[in-house]
Design a binder for these strands. Structure first.
Lengths: 165, 165
DNA sequence: TATCTAATGTTATATCATAACAGTCAAGAG
DNA sequence: CTCTTGACTGTTATGATATAACATTAGATA
């Protein structure tokens, strides 16, 4: 699953490129430092692995890579690191894919939405303050106190839409 | 999991009451008839089971009930019926809970959003045409052709919010 | 009736996730 | 400096969710 190679090359512009990845990692580190978080080797490496991937990775895919590099080889190793990253806003969980992806702007508080390509499985993070605001209001109207939300869209990314046409 | 009893009684007004359930089932049947769908005994009973439940049910919970009534006792029996209902708009899948819930207005084409209570696990279906329209537009702006979307909010339902206060 | 297709059922297995506990290590208290 | 403490990492084991593949049955129809 989640091979994610794509005939046309990058389909996930935000994550692509080692330079981008380094920049995001640096931001994440600064963010951790500032917040007193311990970005330990496994956690840091897990974040790097997510950044190196185009698209989202399943926990067991992350685990495979960690294990190959001498970290623990059992599921909790990956899940703990991933959950840590998600809790602290350095990564996101993509529920529809049972997968995880690095956050592209880890310093800002934000709610994320994802656009998932049905064809190449690319995952694009979109910022959707206005959507979540609207949702918070709509929920409030029926007395529901919204705390978190999952917004995931499925369809065709620009590359695949072009090819399909 | 998903005990869903609630100290204050109903927390999922749309599904509550046998009369409501019957009405929705009737709508679903009419919808199936009109669309040439085969609402077979397992499928029909699966829908009833979802309607009888307050909140969402996991596939294995549905399976348990089906098996107890003489239907097949293996996972595919439940998954097939549930997937059929979801595909034809008679039920929805709630990803965050790995669960399914009957659609409360099966006749209309619609995109649904769910408000999931963290405390009592109630699931309320909300209609969110404006949200999905906004999302379709936002996606379109980056060249993404949106086909389906999952919108799920987590927080406190009105009953639980009141109690927590 | 013979045939075809959709639906149901079964076995087996894949995939995703966590509980529970043991060992490790760094930072602060004495 | 050493001991305690708490957070982190690691392991074993198991639970929970989901599907592939194939056999069987039931309805429609030629």
């Amino acid at each position: 699953m989640t091979d994610h190679s794509h005939p046309a090359g990058f389909c996930c512009p935000d994550h692509s490129g080692a330079a981008q990845a380094r920049a995001i990692l640096a931001q994440a580190e600064a963010h951790a430092q500032a917040g007193g978080l311990r970005l330990t080797p496994v956690r840091r490496r897990t974040l790097e692995i997510l950044l190196e991937a185009h698209g989202a990775l399943g926990a067991y895919e992350v685990l495979e890579r960690l294990a190959a590099e001498g970290y623990g080889a059992q599921p909790p190793v990956a899940y703990r690191a991933l959950n840590f990253l998600v809790e602290h806003g350095l990564a996101h969980r993509v529920r529809r894919l049972n997968a995880f992806t690095a956050c592209v702007h880890p310093t800002q508080e934000h709610r994320a939405a994802f656009l998932i390509c049905d064809r190449c499985e690319s995952v694009t993070e979109a910022s959707v303050e206005s959507l979540t605001r609207a949702m918070t209001e709509a929920a409030g109207a029926v007395g529901f106190k919204l705390e978190r939300s999952t917004i995931e869209g499925v369809g065709l990314c620009s590359v695949c839409a072009g090819e399909a046409a």
